[in-house]
Design a protein around this nucleic acid. Structure first.
Lengths: 338, 338
DNA sequence: CTGAAAGCGCTTACAG
DNA sequence: CTGAAAGCGCTTACAG
């Protein structure tokens, strides 16, 4: 399987021009006479020539590749996001190189180390948390970094998230407004700012109504954990009337535990609210009330920031929050206070 | 945002060695004295040096990057597969650059063109179909190609699939064995060999029992299509007692149409069989009887073939089929013939 | 507009 | 084991 590496020199020889002319013929906007361009193109076609992107990338110091580090690919929100990211970046001439990391520090560090060596033009970290140390390392390497669906304590790090805190508050207001009083929260992973913000907003929202959650447990963005936690919380004597779950992916698991393990009815016995509004949330088997985290708008914002950073423009704002609207569906309903 | 490009020359100067020595210090298995290596490493650390992978790739004529073209990312089978591919290839020192294509010829062609220019070391086409023309173009460029979950009429093209034909037969045997006689098929996209093979196996299986399907329609791997088709097929007077669906992703939609649009009970009124056994199939809301297409084994086979091709070893077999077992769950049951 | 020359940051024979 | 030299396949000033 030997590659028939045809180079610009071969084409030049075949077309009877100099090698730089071949290069120019393949550079959009370079000055070449139509005549020579035609000769070059014909020779190139004949020989099956394709400019070597690697060589070009090396010289120009840019690869037109963006590194994406992602975990939790079983959460459909991220599959959607990858697809959107890939399509949107393509419009700007960029491609995505994907690193799947687990969410431990070490794994993310290794991925980033790899990325830095790969001369990517930018790095997007989605659904993984970074240490400040790592952030600074990326910054020192001079590589644009944008966090997707993760914030960091340093507000200077460019990040795009939903309005997680406000979304949490909305969930609280909504559930209280339905007449619920005994309310539980199965939170997103408390190692992520996203999980923390949603929880804080929710707790503050409850507090405004003089309430405290009857339970508040970390679901770690994991189905099995969410199910186990649900069984525990709802087994007690003072069963919650409602539960706010840190994301849809876990909410589906909570529904399963509620209905199949505990034999409870939703929404008759329990109201359930999720977060994300992934496509599946609208499937009628789930029909999940949830806070919409619009993947397309978030991706657009991420790409926008990335392009600004790559072009050396100052960022208008480092922190972009996309509004999360509450989408009311069938897993919630007004409490009958008989 | 200027990059502080530190090169091997800078490190060489700082360490008081020649530039090639720096290169050797960063090449596993190269001969450098421990003393010089230490000096180089220290200087590199101080300066924040990272070898330029692009330059290395250009020289060696290999990028350690595999191009993946994929469509249908909303089918969770492919998200799983991407994750597995990414992890498995990493073990071999390869990374994935992702191209999402829609399934028209043009889109795939463009993606491949892009890939060829990117000097990827190999190409994996998942869930997209290629023309023979494109296949030959890739082959002419000397780039290893493996099809994932798609076959091609030319049996010489390396491809990994489930035993689609045999799986279709198993579905037929199983449903007939349950006592069903009026059986429908909502097939995978007939533009894909996968969809065609599953259908052919199913039809042949029915024929062995002297049966013909009461309906056989292309679901195009699409939820909306599958639902519309379901409503049509099951609205008629001679309602099918069972349906075999071309993949799980569509089967979930079929279940929704059956239960929510038509008010039918599964499995009491209708038995449903899918194909793939994605993780969701085991969720108890679905509890879908299906044919298992083991993503991990398939990915392992793809990577294995790719590595053989890259290393110039002759392939044992160009066509690998991974056995599809029937997983019996709750959407099927023996027919009551009262 | 076009070619000869230099150079991007590495690796790889080639001497020593 | 180490350095001086050549070269990977391009792009980019620099002359003309």
């Amino acid at each position: 399987m030997v590659e028939n590496r045809v180079t610009s020199v071969d084409v030049a020889r075949a077309a009877g021009v100099s090698q730089p002319t071949v290069s120019r013929a393949f550079t959009p906007g370079a000055r070449v006479s139509p005549e020579l361009r035609a000769r070059v193109e014909e020779a190139a076609r004949k020989l099956g020539y394709r400019p070597n992107t690697l060589a070009r990338a090396m010289i120009k110091g840019q690869s037109n590749v963006i590194g994406l580090v992602v975990a939790y690919l079983d959460n459909p929100f991220y599959s959607e996001a990858i697809e959107l990211l890939s399509r949107t970046l393509k419009e700007f001439g960029y491609h995505i190189i994907v690193f799947t990391a687990s969410n431990d520090e070490n794994s993310v560090d290794l991925a980033v180390e790899d990325l830095l060596a790969h001369q990517v033009d930018g790095i997007i970290l989605a659904s993984v948390s970074t240490t400040l140390k790592l952030t600074h390392e990326i910054r020192n390497a001079g590589i644009p970094l944008v966090l997707f669906n993760r914030g960091q304590n340093d507000p200077a790090i460019p990040a795009v998230t939903a309005t997680n805190y406000a979304g949490g508050r909305k969930a609280a207001d909504f559930l209280v407004g339905l007449g619920h009083r005994r309310i539980a929260h199965i939170s997103g992973w408390q190692g992520s700012l996203t999980g923390v913000d949603r929880m804080r907003g929710f707790l503050d929202g409850l507090a405004d109504h003089g309430l405290e959650p009857v339970a508040c447990v970390d679901g770690r963005y994991d189905r099995a954990t969410a199910m186990a936690v649900t069984r525990e919380i709802f087994a007690g004597p003072e069963r919650p009337e409602a539960v706010f779950v840190g994301n849809d992916h876990m909410a589906f698991a909570v529904l399963e535990a509620l209905q199949h393990d505990l034999g409870l009815r939703v929404p008759e016995d329990v109201s359930v609210v999720g977060f994300d509004d992934v496509k599946m949330a609208a499937w009628r088997v789930f029909d999940l009330t949830t806070l919409r985290q619009p993947a397309n708008e978030m991706v657009a914002a991420v790409v926008d920031m990335m392009m600004q950073l790559i072009n050396g423009k100052p960022l208008e704002r480092a922190r972009v929050e996309i509004d999360s609207a509450l989408i009311e569906r069938g897993t919630t309903r007004k409490r009958n206070r008989e």
